[in-house]
Structure formats: C-alpha cells, structure tokens
C-alpha cells in the first residue's frame, strides 16, 4: 500500500477526476461536489439568519446589499441546482440500496438528471427571466 506521503493528493484526484469515468462515477462526483457545496451553504445560511434577530434595519440592509450583487442570484441558482441534483440522485441511490432498479441505474440517472436540469432551467427563468 502506498503510504499517505506517496499518495499525496492522488485520492482527491481520484474522487473528482471525471476522465475515464462511467455514468455511475460521474453521478458520484456530482453527488459529492453538491454535498460539500450544500453543507457549506447550509451553515453560511444559518449564520447569516442570525441578523434577523438584530431588527428590520440590519436585516433589510443585508438583503439590499445582497440584492445589488449579481453573485448572490447566481449563488442561489447554484444552491437550487445542487439541491435538485443531490436530492434526485439521492433518490436513485436510496432505491438502489434496497436493490431496486440497480441494473437500470444509468437510465435512472439520465431520467432524474434530466428532471434536475428542467428544474434548474425553470428556476433560472423564474429568477432571471423577465
């Protein structure tokens, strides 16, 4: 076995490198990236909600500053995209774990991922359209 030192950051590459991966592997990469992103968002979100306790001025100022930044909207869309991808793929993994539809895991992924894309498009139009 390679020691930790010899391995370096090889493991990180192997988790996230999409080259040569099949559909299941790509789904795993997406799942792990969205998981990490969503956890980060969750705790930032909880942290910023604290400002609700500081009265209307503080909160509204915070919202105004956020509204003025284009990044917040894009960030929100990322959260929605992450949630949809992670959630729908999670359904696939949950079903598979009871040995349901394992031979059709690829088709299941295509189906659910299409659903996620439709959802993302819907929210993108909803948020940025018009």
């Amino acid at each position: 076995m390679l020691s930790r030192e010899q391995q370096g950051l090889n493991w990180l590459l192997q988790w996230f490198d999409p080259r040569g991966r099949s559909i299941g592997g790509l789904a795993f990469i997406l799942n792990r990236i969205t998981a990490l992103g969503l956890v980060l968002y969750l705790y930032l979100h909880l942290y910023y909600l604290r400002q609700l306790t500081m009265g209307p001025q503080v909160w509204n100022a915070f919202i105004d500053s956020a509204e003025n930044s284009p990044w917040i909207g894009i960030g929100e869309l990322f959260v929605i995209a992450g949630g949809l991808i992670h959630g729908l793929n999670g359904l696939r993994i949950a079903l598979n774990s009871f040995n349901i539809a394992v031979p059709y895991q690829k088709q299941l992924f295509y189906g659910l991922f299409t659903l996620a894309l439709i959802g993302i498009a819907f929210f993108a139009v909803h948020m940025f359209g018009a």
């Binding site: 991966r21 099949s22 559909i23 299941g24 592997g25 789904a27 795993f28 799942n31 792990r32 696939r92 993994i93 598979n96 774990s97 040995n99 394992v102 031979p103 895991q105």
Partner: peptide, 19 residues
C-alpha cells in the same frame, strides 16, 4: 460504497459487484 458503479462498469468477467 458510494454507488459509483465503476466496479461493474470495468468488470471483465460478469461478476457485477455493484449489483
């Protein structure tokens, strides 16, 4: 197992470990 199903994708011998 994180359901990447790479094992079954590369298995040359019909073991289908992921299943």
């Amino acid at each position: 197992c994180h359901s990447a199903y790479e094992c079954s994708a590369v298995c040359p011998s019909n073991v289908d470990p992921a299943w």
